[in-house]
Design a protein around this nucleic acid. Structure first.
Length: 579
RNA sequence: GCGCCCGUAGCUCAAUUGGAUAGAGCGUUUGGCUACGGACCAAAAGGCUGGGGGUUCGACUCCCUCCGGGCGCGCCA
């Protein structure tokens, strides 16, 4: 349940008014006309106009429940309102017959619109004119959005859990960028503190072990096999110089050495996973800026801090948290929360209008206090969105795998990439809703990868590429005319019109995916487009003796290819020419 | 005990943010290439959407309640 999560950025209104003129969707234009007509009938208190694609055949290409909603507001009958609204559309020459060839009223007041083929042909023509821009929105003053994700501590390699975050976060960034926002990706590197010292102590013991010394890894230290490699590299680089060093000095060295070594691995894995961050903020570096003290001073100046029991408290209850939180412990050490507040202040200070954090489910209890902090800093609630990306439960066959970085029991992102490939892994993670737990069976991973829907979608791309490759051989002497002269009006088979309709849906799909912060909408869309293409392909041959029809169908194929490539690109998945 | 997330076909998941007869893939059954790629297509079977109440023209979706699973409730990070 609870899929009604909606981030309310008022993006939709922005879409309608600022969507780039050239790629404005048919849907957007009709929604606007309906909205205007509705205002004349019902005044200012009108519901948002949303056109949907009906599931059932016979209900038209687009449908709206607008009349039913207005009926509820005004107490009038749904069918009467629907009559008035459809009448207004019929009287609007920009709508009928330019966009709609038929309007019907069904049920208690659904308005079903049947698009005219000409409108769909025009949309394809727009796409072919500028494929690179199709689906994207241009804005006068785009919101600047910072999205922070992964941010794994450099105490071990990235796991599948991080992989899911990486796939979701990076895809969201790409989607939001296409939806017209200014997006930056951020990684927060927790490279100091207790865990890092434990890492250093563990690495030092591994190092001692290499020299045959008695080595005891701390109980709560890091026991994974990867620690051995780190120790070996340290030995190769440093020789035996740390054998004689004092514990304090040695642990400091190994802390930094191990963290740096692990970080290089993280960057390498992310790079191979096609994820690149625009900003890396290290806690060490950040601490040295004095911004944490500044932030504490700021909160104190606002009267939101008090001292009690020898500790310093932030009055987060004033902003909806259920208890106040300690910032500085009675031993003088800061809590984890303190630099995090300053860090978020810094994010906004860098000029971002919106900050999105992707967190694991173990952080959901942290949400109220971080939201409280953001509000205390003077920012509006909707400017900060923590997004919980649920865990992936791993199985090997029936065996449930436990995941613990410290104990060294985990499945790395690298293993998954090696086993199923980047395309399949990224698609898999992006295709599931972020708030659903999902099961991932490694034993079936390789086998399943062949059944993965990602191949179904990629196959469309490869098939179309193949058509173009075979063209000279199938039709010797055929000269492909420029797209703008393709006789698109010849595309009138039902399957062709279905495909055209889907192509025209792409911009809105991207916008809605960005708005809902759910990349899986792109996957759903692509799978529908792929199915529609395969059906059309099976039924209608592209290359035929009819040169005009061939040109038109090639144009349609090219349109599909562009959209598939674009959509896969949003997911960080390749669009292969052959498979 | 309190809080957050989840529960949909045998399995893994969707469902246009409250719409019309809940859909895909895998698995099972049956058809289809002398065609531009069969990694495809067509069809069948499979559902009281965990149970029960409520809200309304209409509920997988919102509210209440129970059941089941995951996670969190620190002067840890």
């Amino acid at each position: 349940m609870g899929r009604g999560r909606y981030y309310g950025w008022k993006l939709k209104a922005a879409m309608q008014t600022e969507e780039h003129q050239e790629t404005r969707s048919i849907r957007g234009r009709i929604e606007e006309a309906l909205s205007r007509a509705c205002r004349e009938i019902a005044g200012d208190r009108i519901p948002p106009v949303i056109l949907e694609k009906p599931r059932r055949e016979g209900h038209g290409d687009l449908s709206t429940n607008l009349a039913l909603l207005v009926a509820r507001e005004t107490g009038a009958k749904g069918r009467d309102i629907a009559e008035k609204l459809s009448g207004a559309l019929r009287a609007n020459p920009g709508m009928c017959p330019a966009l709609c060839e038929k309007i019907e009223i069904a049920g208690g007041g659904f308005i079903n619109l049947f698009l005219s083929p000409g409108a769909l042909h025009a949309q394809l023509a727009l796409l072919l004119k500028n494929p690179g821009r199709y689906g994207s929105s241009a804005r006068a003053n785009p919101l600047k959005i910072l999205i922070e994700f992964v941010s794994a501590n450099p105490t071990g390699p990235l796991t599948v859990a991080h992989g899911r975050q990486a796939a979701v976060g990076d895809s969201l960034a790409r989607i939001m960028a296409m939806a017209g926002f200014g997006v930056a990706r951020e990684y927060y590197l927790n490279d100091r503190g207790k865990q890092i010292r434990l890492l250093g102590a563990s690495a030092r013991q591994r190092y001692l072990d290499l020299f045959g010394r008695t080595a005891v890894i701390p109980e709560d230290g890091y026991h994974g096999d990867y620690m051995r490699g780190i120790a070996e590299r340290a030995k190769a680089a440093e020789g035996d110089r740390w054998l004689a060093a004092g514990e304090e000095e040695a642990v400091s060295f190994f802390s930094k050495y191990a963290a740096d070594d692990i970080l290089r691995g993280i960057v390498r894995d992310l790079d191979e996973f096609r994820v690149r961050f625009d900003h890396w903020t290290s806690e060490t570096g950040f601490s040295a800026t004095g911004k944490i003290e500044e932030c504490l001073d700021f909160l104190r100046s606002k009267g939101l801090i008090h001292d009690r029991d020898g500790a310093v408290w932030f009055e987060s209850t004033k902003f909806g948290d259920d208890k106040d939180r300690v910032l500085v412990k009675s031993d003088g050490q800061r809590t984890y929360f303190t630099p995090d507040i300053a860090y978020h202040r810094d994010k906004f200070g860098r000029g971002f209008d919106r900050v999105i954090d992707l967190w694991g489910p173990d952080h959901h209890g942290y949400i109220p206090r971080m939201k409280a902090a953001v509000k205390a800093l003077g920012y509006a609630e909707e400017q900060f969105t923590p997004l919980i990306v649920q865990l992936t439960t791993l199985f090997r066959g029936k065996e449930k795998l436990s995941m613990s970085t410290r104990a060294g029991e985990f499945v790395t992102l690298r293993e998954v990439m090696d086993e199923v490939g980047v395309d399949a892994a990224r698609y898999f993670f992006a295709s599931m809703r972020t708030d659903s737990h999902l099961n991932f069976d490694l034993a079936l991973a390789a086998k399943r990868s062949n059944d993965n829907p990602v191949y179904y979608v990629q196959y469309v791309h490869a098939r179309i590429c193949s058509i173009f490759k075979r063209l000279p051989e199938k039709l010797p002497g055929f000269v492909l005319p420029p797209w703008q002269s393709a006789p698109l009006a010849l595309l009138k088979e039902r399957e062709e019109l279905d495909l055209l309709g889907l192509i025209s849906d792409y911009p809105l799909t991207v916008a809605r995916s960005a708005e809902a912060l759910e990349p899986n909408a792109i996957c759903n869309y692509l799978e529908g487009l792929a199915a529609s293409f395969h059906q059309c392909y099976t039924k209608h041959t592209v290359i035929s003796e009819n040169a005009a029809l061939t040109a038109a169908r090639l144009a349609l194929a090219e349109g599909v290819r562009c959209v598939v490539r674009s959509g896969l690109g949003l997911l960080g998945v390749s669009a292969p020419e052959e498979m």
